[in-house]
Design a protein around this nucleic acid. Structure first.
Lengths: 350, 350
DNA sequence: TTGTAAGCGTTATCAA
DNA sequence: TTGATAACGCTTACAA
């Protein structure tokens, strides 16, 4: 059997509580006893039993990341994956471990984490958010942070998210700077909270353009219909650029444009949300509105630990700004950029 | 405070141990007491405290997946990511949770998991394997499974891996069936265990080809040198196809071939290891030797639970066969396929 | 600065 | 089939 705190105590000739104090770096202990205790620990190859510690303190030393995936593809493509690294790192920095749990059984899994005290806090994907869950967490006063845009909006929610509105904005302004003044937004669904933010940001940015035209939205979840949507948008030069909501859409848009004999970036500009998984490898490489997912994960984890340590703070919303990665697909700068555009560059928002 | 086993006992008028028995589905308890106890549990909204249970039983109810990543990209691209879903699912099926831990501090983190009893078992990436670690695990009789090909080979290792040798084999035979009889293997490094398996499988398969020629290996970790390697391989028709060790290499190979005015698949055939992240989206889409990473994760987790439950079993090696996903980059069937090739198709290994 | 002792909630041993 | 009780290893008042 491995050594316990009592073995150390016996060896050194002190009481177990003194050993405990040494273990936890208590200040009310003499340097000398501490040294002797530490020596004894080495000698007996002592390692604290985290099970006993957790039991005694009531803290698990664990935070849980909830995943909401029906299949491995969901799971792997999930942008959480790329945030996990950050979460794990922040957890370690706080002396915690990170638990990953797939919640495919309508929050039965989450309940067990909460009620059976298997974690000290939860990071929850927006797709798992519902009123029942939130009510339960509130009732139990259980620390959590939601990541992404939940379907229900409430100011009682603790959440971190991408600033999708700002994302649309930088894309539109970038396109304008490159000489594309009539962008269309290509999106699969206008109903989700996050799509709404993108649409809203898009409209606002187009409106604010020098001589801003009307915002064109191509919205279709249907692959077949995309071609028609694009055709309509291109009709009579209504649009000269597309901002796609994800890489898949961008890829399909690119194919359709090529099929129509339109060149990117010469004839049409293209920008996509998300620099993942293959914006960089398309032909031409596609300019992306990128989210620093490490940063997003870090934000979520940091905020969770803040909530664990400050239980009474009221929930808030924390947004992460996006960044633009310029690539060939929108690279027309100088060619058509007029002076108004140049001015805008100088005075534009950053 | 939440209800405990004692509260239930008091309410029902039995002893705590009886309640515990009911909780764990013990057979030596009358159906009637069990019912009364279950009713009381509902009434008091009782949930077992897993901290206490873990402490009492000495089992954490947790397995840990070790990740070996220096940065978020390593972490996200890691094929473990796609296996995690399976591991988590198997863990849940066994009533366990999955812990994710990045081990960037030279196994300090792993030690703590083991010595402080923070998990009941470990899934370890081959890159984390070293003699010290293995010695430690053996000494502590701690259940683990290694995933991937470790640098040190030992028959004392419990591990699951992709059958890389077989992977090269199906690629070579597929190319032959499509009429490419002089394939070259493009790989970054011949020294790793897993590269060796691929090289070995490649040589063997080429040797076994009808009138099998000599196997050509293009090996260079250096991006600049790749062009020269390929040029040498193409010299005088030495090669008519390439099997690339990963998607990046395939992408670069494709670019270099195009730069030389060679068409894929008409002039040159192309197959890549790994169907990830963008083999499907290249132009043309690239045939891939695919690993079912879900299956690999499942194998690892199942094997770990087997080892947790059967501590005295000696370690073994479990290999997962790859599959070929045929795409345009190797689609020349019928065009140049000669009769020898057609025979081979009929009688070839599957 | 240290020791004593109670307590955390469950399981497990033994006796009834 | 049930109950009493010890045990798991650590933390934490409280007392000294």
């Amino acid at each position: 059997m491995s050594a316990t705190i009592k073995d150390i105590a016996k060896l050194v000739g002190v009481s177990p509580s003194t050993v405990s104090r040494a273990l936890n770096g208590s200040s009310l202990i003499s340097g000398e006893t501490r040294n002797r205790i530490q020596k004894a620990m080495k000698q007996l190859d002592y390692h604290p039993n985290s099970l006993a510690k957790s039991f005694a303190t009531g803290s698990t030393g664990t935070i849980a990341l909830i995943i909401d995936a029906d299949n491995e593809k969901d799971f792997a493509n999930n942008f959480f994956n790329r945030s996990m690294f950050a979460m794990e790192r922040i957890a370690q920095a706080n002396g915690y471990n990170l638990l990953i749990t797939n919640d495919n059984e309508k929050r039965r899994v989450i309940s067990s984490l909460v009620y059976e005290k298997k974690a000290d806090g939860l990071i929850i994907p927006s797709s798992s958010v519902n009123l029942h869950l939130m009510a339960m967490l509130d009732k139990e006063r259980f620390p959590y942070v939601v990541m992404g845009s939940p379907a229900i909006l409430s100011d009682q929610l603790a959440w971190v998210d991408v600033d999708n509105e700002q994302g649309s904005g930088i894309a539109v302004r970038h396109l304008a700077e490159e000489g594309y003044r009539r962008p269309a937004l290509v999106i699969e669904n206008e109903e989700t909270v996050f799509a709404k933010s993108r649409v809203q940001g898009f409209r606002k940015a187009v409106r604010e353009l020098e001589g801003g035209g009307s915002a064109v939205i191509c919205c279709t979840p249907d692959e077949a219909a995309l071609g028609e949507e694009l055709a309509a948008a291109l009709e009579g030069g209504r649009c000269d650029a597309f901002l796609c909501a994800n890489n898949e859409l961008a890829f399909r848009t690119l194919q359709l444009l090529r099929a129509r004999g339109l060149r990117v970036p010469e004839d049409i500009g293209l920008v996509t949300f998300d620099n993942y998984p293959f914006a960089e490898y398309m032909d031409p490489p596609v300019t992306a509105v990128d989210v620093d997912t490490y940063e997003l994960g870090r934000m979520a984890a940091e905020y969770l630990f803040f909530r664990i340590k400050n239980r009474e703070q009221r929930p808030e919303r924390r947004l992460l700004r996006t960044e633009l990665i310029p690539r060939a697909s929108s690279g027309r700068r100088g060619e058509k950029a007029d002076s108004a555009c140049a001015e805008r560059q100088a005075g534009g928002k950053r």
